[in-house]
Amino acid sequence: MTTTPIPTTAPPRLAAPAAAGAAVSGAAYDEAIALTRRLKLPHIRRALAEIVPTAKAQRWDPAEVVRALLAEEAAGRDAANLRTRRSRAAFPTGKTFHIWNEDASSIPIPTQSALRTLEWVGRRENLCICGPSGTGKSHFCEALGQAAVDAGLTVAWFTIEDLGALVRRHRVDDSVSKAMTRITRTDLIIVDDIGLLPVSADAAEGFYRLVDAAYERRSLAVSSNLHPSGFDEIMPKTLATATVDRLLHHAHVVVTQGDSHRLTEATTGNGVVPLN
Rank of each mutant, 00 (worst) to 15 (best):
S200E: 04
R171W: 15
G195H: 10
D174E: 07
G26E: 09
V149E: 01
Q257V: 00
I6V: 07
S200K: 00
D162G: 14
R85A: 10
D150V: 12
I44P: 03
G164Q: 03
S177P: 08
G26V: 14
L210H: 06
R45I: 10
H261E: 09
D212G: 05
D173H: 01
G134Y: 04
I189A: 05
A28Q: 03
E119A: 15
Y215F: 08
T256Q: 12
D245V: 07
P12E: 02
A22E: 09
W100I: 13
V52D: 03
A151E: 09
A114D: 14
A204S: 01
A90S: 07
L197F: 08
Q112K: 12
K40F: 04
L188M: 09
K56E: 07
I51N: 09
I109L: 12
G195F: 03
E265I: 04
A156N: 01
A179W: 06
D174L: 12
G269N: 04
R85M: 02
D259A: 15
N225W: 07
H98Y: 05
H170K: 13
P11Y: 14
G258H: 11
L220N: 13
T84N: 05
A68W: 10
R37C: 08
S219A: 14
E31I: 10
A34D: 06
E125R: 11
I129W: 13
S113I: 14
A147V: 00
A80V: 12
G152P: 04
S133I: 11
D245P: 09
A104W: 04
K237A: 13
N101Y: 00
P62D: 11
P108Y: 00
A221H: 07
S25Y: 00
Q112S: 11
G271V: 00
E205P: 01
D61A: 03
G76C: 02
V255Q: 13
E233T: 12
R168V: 10
W100N: 14
T135N: 01
A19D: 15
E142A: 11
P108K: 10
I107E: 07
D192R: 08
T186Q: 08
E72Y: 10
P228K: 11
D30P: 08
T241A: 12
A214Y: 14
R169S: 11
P53S: 01
G136D: 00
E125D: 15
L118T: 05
A179C: 11
D193C: 06
A251G: 03
A79Q: 05
D30R: 15
R169I: 00
I99G: 04
M1P: 04
T264N: 15
F231Q: 05
H227P: 02
A148E: 10
S106R: 04
C141E: 13
F97N: 01
D162L: 05
L115G: 08
T241M: 09
A34T: 06
G122Q: 11
T96R: 01
L188A: 04
V52S: 06
R37Y: 00
V191D: 03
L115D: 08
L14E: 14
L39K: 00
A74W: 03
N270H: 09
P53K: 04
A204M: 00
A213D: 14
I234D: 09
E102Y: 02
A148I: 12
R171S: 13
A213N: 10
G145V: 02
G195Y: 08
L153F: 09
N81M: 10
A242Q: 01
A32G: 06
A89Q: 04
A19M: 10
L247A: 12
H139L: 05
R45Q: 15
A27D: 09
E50K: 04
P274D: 05
R123M: 14
